[in-house]
């Protein structure tokens, strides 16, 4: 929970594995790294058992690069595929019972504020669609109603992937899965709308086939949660196993789903816009300048 916790104790350097040394010396801690620098610095995510070609894996990889202060971040997760990778990173990870992640994160973020005051310590929940919209829904919604200041990220693969293919509230209507052989009878839940109604200050949907956008929304969500209020990101992270997507077609599928039900959407409260602009120098929320007269008359 600070840069110091990853550093070597004097005399121990030579006993540390190469991966660890690389991470301390060439990792993202204490400096800014971006998606466009990927492949030239050591990432904090290590090897893990998630399936080959899983889009959720890619999303988690990008998310960890996007965290504004990885050395001051704690991730919280729950049962489901994502924790298999999230737990294999040099970022402290808290794992609770299935569905209690937003309750755990509420206590954690309050405790960190008591202990560290104004020094930002970011709490980021990453959990599946089952964990977020079904089993954990009550705790998720109440954390938003209570305006708990941390980020909730739904890894939406539209299925219970880790347990072999049951439908979730986020499964698309009509989808046939191994353990939903008759097809889902109900609509996909509108968690984005629920997040807005429940008072999130920043809400966005994203797909991993746009790495820079993933980076951008996660940064904003984490920064907004520091002071303004809860933030929610809903990411489409396909399960190529349960939806039988050939691994080399995962990005094609992401594009198709983006066009169908995952168009980019971003909601930023007025207070959050002002905060991002004034505190962190964001320019995108400044009022657009009035169009010059020439273009109004069509002679741009």
């Amino acid at each position: 929970m600070s840069l110091d916790y990853v550093k070597f104790s004097n005399g121990f350097e030579k006993f540390m594995p190469k991966e660890y040394r690389d991470m301390v010396e060439h990792g993202p801690f204490g400096r800014k790294v971006t998606v466009s620098q990927m492949g030239s610095f050591k990432e904090v995510l290590e090897e893990h058992p998630m399936c080959a070609g899983c889009a959720m894996t890619l999303f988690i990889r990008l998310a960890m690069i996007a965290f504004p202060n990885p050395e001051d971040t704690i991730t919280v997760g729950t049962a489901g595929c994502g924790r298999l990778a999230i737990s294999q990173a040099a970022i402290p990870f808290v794992y609770g019972n299935y569905g209690d992640q937003n309750g755990v994160a509420s206590g954690l973020s309050r405790g960190l504020r008591l202990r560290f005051g104004d020094k930002p310590k970011d709490v980021v929940v990453m959990a599946g669609d089952g964990g977020t919209a079904d089993i954990g829904l009550q705790q998720v919604l109440h954390s938003w109603f209570r305006k708990e200041r941390f980020t909730t990220i739904m890894l939406d693969n539209e299925v219970y992937g880790n347990t072999g293919g049951q439908e979730s509230g986020m499964t698309n209507k009509g989808a046939v899965l191994k353990m939903a052989p008759l097809g889902k009878k109900f609509e996909k839940m509108d968690m984005v709308q629920l997040a807005k109604v429940a008072g999130c200050a920043y809400v966005a949907t994203v797909v991993p086939n746009n790495p820079r956008r993933v980076e951008s929304v996660i940064k904003k969500a984490v920064l907004v949660a520091r002071e303004i209020g809860p933030s929610y990101i809903q990411a489409y992270t396909s399960c190529n196993i349960e939806y039988a997507i050939p691994t080399d077609k995962v990005m094609e599928d992401a594009k198709a789903v983006e066009n169908d039900r995952y168009q980019f959407m971003e909601y930023v409260s007025e207070e959050a816009k002002q905060y991002l602009t004034e505190r962190y120098g964001y320019k995108e929320f400044l009022a657009k300048q009035a169009a010059p007269a020439a273009s109004i008359s069509g002679k741009a």
Partner: peptide, 16 residues
């Protein structure tokens, strides 16, 4: 172009 690096699901795998 460095694109592949940004899409490989595995960290620290496609390097430059």
């Amino acid at each position: 172009c460095k694109l592949c690096t940004q899409y490989c699901p595995e960290a620290n795998t496609i390097l430059y």
